[in-house]
Structures are given as structure tokens and as C-alpha cells.
Amino acid sequence: MHNSSSSISSIDDLHRVQPSPIYVLDDGESNSNNDSSKKSINKPKKPTSKWLIPILYRVQKYSAYSFLSFLGIHLTSVIVVPILPINPEIKNEVFSITKAIYHDIPFFESFVIIGSSLTHILSGIALRIIKNYKKNQIKEKQQRHKLNSENIIKINNSNIKLEDNDDEIGLGGISSIFGLGYRKSFITKYFNLTPLQFSGYLSIPFLIYHFYKFRYIPLSIEGDSSLINLDYVNYVLNLKFPLFNEICLGTLVWVVSYHVTNGILKLNSLYSSTWKKIGLGVVNTIGIMGMISIWFFKNDKQFLFNGNDFVGKAFKKYLNSYFL
């Protein structure tokens, strides 16, 4: 009796409910619903800088290598060969041959020299603008979230120990030569530029003046620069503001050699102290050779010639046509 009464009471507890359809989703429908639900979620768009910065780095890298193909040829003919103890006529022949490469090959000057250098400069400026913008955004976020003082000191303290791959060190400078270790460059401290960036910007006016003096002026007067040879360098260093032109050529050699050497190491991720020493050695070697070459051009009588002949008169006309 007890069992039957309990079963009756449990039946009484049951309630009638309104029937409702039950849908069973197959795999296809479930996947489509999941996809639609995912699409409905507003995902943040990938920041422009995330894809733009790598592209600009590649543009800067390969434009630099393009310009190097010209620079290596040119430096060989105006720095290395002139200081060799060989016949002056051979030196001028080598210069003429190398000049024919970048003047006579179609579009070489337009694309490899002018085009690649402008592309390199503009991509570098674009990278700097984007990076500065990102830094300002980070600073604003730090101020909004009120980072603790320890993190703020870590970010802003100028006495932080720098790693070997830090761009603010550059190639090390004088302190590393005398065994004083690597220190943050004063260029970064006072100009907010890395040594690589500073040397790049500093080389621009010297490169423009060099192009103007040795290429543009003869081109604008004669229609080409076929008369330009190593004798013209001697002419420039002796007759038209000689000290100023010596300083310009010397500075051009040192600054460009530093920028190119430091840039090659950076592009190939060579940051160790050993590579920094090798880089400084390359810069100093090229710089010293450049100074010797300038001294040869100015003082060695083998480059002097009769200024009253046709070529000499043309050179005088070139020199008198520009201000410096």
C-alpha cells in the first residue's frame, strides 16, 4: 500500500507543459552559425603601422643596396685608384671607364643613383614619422593608465644600460676605441636622432653639393659631363674656394662611409661588439684614404695641367658658373 500511494502522489506532481519543437543542427548548420557569430564580433583592424613599417624597411634596404652598386664603383675610381703609385693616365682611364658605367648605361643614373637615393631618404623619413607617432601614442597610454614609477623610470631614464643592438650606440664612437665601453651617443641625447639617422641626414647637403658641382653644372653648360676627369678635382681644390671644397669633400667621405658601414651592419643584424669594431675600422680606413686622396689631388703635380687649353677653359667656365 505504501508503494502504490507514493507512486500516485508522484504522478500527481507532474504538470502538463506546452509542447515546443526541438531542432537538431547538423554539422554544416552549426559551423555556419558559428561563423556568423564570429563575424558579428567586431574585431579590431590591424594597425596600419603593423604592415606599413615592414614594407618601408624593405624599400629602404633594397634602395640602399641599389645605391651601393654605384657608390662602390665611384669610390674605387676617386679614392682607391688615385693614391696608387701608377701612371696618371691609367688613373684617368679607370675613372673614365667607371664614369661610362653610370652615365652611359640607360637609366642607370636615373634609377640606381638618383631614384634609389631619393627612395632611401623618403622611406627613412616616413619610418621616422611613423615611429615618432607610435612613441607619442605609447606615452599617452602610459599617462592615461598611470604606470607605476618603476616602469616610468625604466622607460625614460637616460642612464639605462644599453645593449649591443641598441641603435643609440651606433658603432661605439671614441669611448669604445679607448676601452671605455659603449655609451649612448650624444647625438641621440641632444638631437633625438640615432648616429645612423644623423649621419644620413648630414650627408644629404654634401651629396647634393657634390652632385651639383661635378655633374649638374657641366651638364647644364655642355649638355653632358664628358670632359670631367680627375684633373677637374685638382682644379676645384686649387682654384675655387680651396679650403671650403677640401672640407666639403673630406666631410662627405667620412659621413657617407660611416652611414653606409653602420647601415650595412644594421640591415644584416650585426650588432656585436666585434662587428662594431670592424665597422669603425672600415670607416676610419676609408676616411684616411679619402684624406690622402684629397691631399694627392691638391698637391701632386701629376694632376696639374695647362689651364689655357680647351679643357682648362671649360673647367674655368664650370667653376665660374656656381657660387661655391
Rank of each mutant, 00 (worst) to 15 (best):
S63E: 10
F70D: 02
N42C: 08
S69L: 11
K43S: 09
Y62A: 05
K99D: 00
Y65R: 04
S37M: 14
P54F: 10
P44H: 08
K43N: 08
I101G: 08
A100Y: 02
I55D: 01
V94T: 15
S63I: 12
V81T: 09
I73W: 06
V59G: 07
H74N: 12
E93S: 15
A100K: 08
S49V: 02
E93W: 15
P44Q: 09
I79Y: 07
E93I: 13
F70Q: 01
S40E: 13
T98G: 11
P54L: 10
W51A: 03
K99G: 00
E89Q: 11
Y102L: 04
Y62S: 04
K50N: 11
L68E: 01
V94L: 12
Y57P: 03
L52R: 06
H74S: 11
A100H: 06
S96K: 15
S69M: 07
E89N: 13
F95I: 07
P85G: 04
P82S: 06
K45S: 03
P44S: 08
F107K: 03
A100G: 05
F107Q: 03
Y57G: 09
I79F: 11
Y57W: 10
T76I: 14
T98W: 08
W51V: 08
I83C: 05
Y57L: 15
K91L: 14
T76M: 14
K38D: 11
Q60D: 08
E89I: 13
I97C: 01
L68A: 05
L84Q: 07
W51K: 09
I41Y: 10
A64D: 06
Y102M: 02
Y102F: 15
Y62T: 04
V78G: 01
N42Q: 12
H103R: 15
P47C: 01
H74V: 10
I97G: 00
I79K: 01
N42L: 14
K39N: 14
Y62G: 05
H74G: 09
F107P: 01
K39T: 08
N87I: 06
I90E: 05
S77K: 01
E89R: 12
F107M: 13
N87A: 07
D104M: 04
I97N: 05
K43L: 12
L68N: 01
V94G: 06
V94S: 09
F95T: 06
K46T: 15
L71C: 02
L75E: 04
L52Y: 07
P85N: 07
F67N: 06
F67C: 06
Y65L: 12
S40W: 10
D104N: 15
V94D: 04
I101Y: 13
K46A: 03
K43A: 09
N92P: 02
I105W: 07
T76E: 03
V59R: 07
Q60A: 09
L71S: 09
E89V: 11
F95V: 05
I73C: 06
I105H: 03
P88V: 13
R58W: 14
I105T: 14
A64G: 11
P106V: 08
S77E: 05
P85A: 04
K91G: 12
K39I: 12
L52F: 13
A100E: 01
G72T: 02
K43I: 11
I73K: 05
R58K: 12
